[in-house]
Simulated scan of single mutants.
Amino acid sequence: MTRTKIDPRTIFSDAKTEGRLVYIAGPMVRYSKLPFRATVRHFGADIVYTPMILAREFIRSQYARDTDFTTNDSDSCLIVQFGVNSPEDLARAAEMVEPYCDGIGINCGCPIKDQISQGIGAALMEQPEKVCAMIRAVKERCPNLCVEAKIRIHRDINKTLRMAESIVNAGADYLVVHGRCKEQRSREPVNIDAIKAVCQHVRAMSNAIPVVANGDVFSVEDAARIAQATGCDGLMAARGILENPSLFSGANKATWGSVELILHYSSAYGLPFRLVQHHVSEMLTHSITRAERKSMNETSNLQELLDWLDERFVLLRPYEKGFGEAIDLPRKCDLNVSTSS
């Protein structure tokens, strides 16, 4: 595989020169697979993450490597995120993926209890020294590889500032801050002031690195508002971009072209049917009725799903003019009414 690398550090540097934000599609378990990554890049994502991969399983099991990480020569700029609590495990995993990615990320924010009980994810928010040891281990083993850490915030903002400072000093290349504590859930708004405090603190350091804000980004308007309020260098979307892969293009809901693209890439690169179905269902949340969504989710394989869509909408294939470009849902009944009138 001949792969063109795109260094995230260069993306941040160029964006700063151009006076723009860096747009990032964040890691989502099961969903940030290759077909989804290709789709969000089409609509302006600068950096895209894999789902979190368990580093220990990845380095020990060929099966885990084959199932957890699939890529191709156009899958860039790509960050492989690991769930990990061992410097040696992370260094070995980073060494394995270095030829096939543009950087690695350390998940310090996953609030799932099972992950925390294993000492990974949000458990690392109480072990900043271990996070720093992992960053240094990767930098020693893979000195040219971009390394990022994604954290949440503490109730005590000073504790978060100290952690951010230690991560910068350990050699991280950029920092992602999710503006909620590990106990908080997505229905609670992110703490904009806390993200702002981290941005200001890191920017004041002599070895400052870019800081990315994460949480509650559901539109480019949200991105602009959060950037204005925090002074961050980039915005990461997860739930918002799952529902609307065309978010960073400025679309207020998933375009029909993005539906065509996710179906195409899923067929071309391979994706389990239930994941394809979930992507399409999420993307059409605001475009079809609840009854239609229920009916669509009752399809049991890809051909049934395509037949269901073809029956109701104009679903273009890659060889047809206009493929991947449509904005609005092209209902066949609407076209019939327009033609007859």
Rank of each mutant, 00 (worst) to 15 (best):
T4V: 11
T4R: 10
S13F: 09
D14C: 06
A15S: 08
G19Q: 02
G19D: 01
V22Y: 01
Y23N: 14
I24P: 14
G26H: 06
Y31C: 13
K33P: 04
P35H: 09
H42N: 13
A45M: 08
I47T: 06
Y49S: 07
P51G: 00
E57Y: 10
S61E: 03
Y63H: 13
T67K: 15
S76G: 10
Q81K: 01
F82G: 08
E88S: 11
M96K: 09
P99H: 00
P99C: 04
C101Y: 02
I104A: 00
I106G: 10
N107D: 05
G109V: 00
C110W: 00
A123K: 08
V131R: 06
I135A: 13
R136P: 09
K139R: 07
K139N: 02
P143E: 00
E148R: 07
K150L: 04
I151C: 12
R152M: 00
R155N: 14
A164N: 09
A164K: 07
E165R: 06
L175F: 13
R187K: 15
R187C: 11
K196N: 11
H201F: 06
R203Y: 05
S206L: 12
N207P: 02
A208C: 11
A208G: 04
G215W: 05
V217D: 00
V220I: 14
E221Q: 12
D222E: 06
A223I: 00
A223K: 03
A224R: 14
I226T: 06
A229V: 11
C232Q: 05
C232V: 03
R239W: 07
G240T: 02
I241W: 01
L242F: 14
S249K: 13
G250E: 02
K253Y: 15
K253T: 11
E260C: 01
Y269M: 09
V280N: 11
S281I: 12
T285G: 12
T285D: 14
H286M: 09
E292T: 09
N297W: 11
E304P: 10
L306I: 15
D310Y: 05
E311W: 13
R312H: 03
R312Q: 06
L316S: 11
K321G: 09
F323D: 01
F323K: 04
R331N: 01
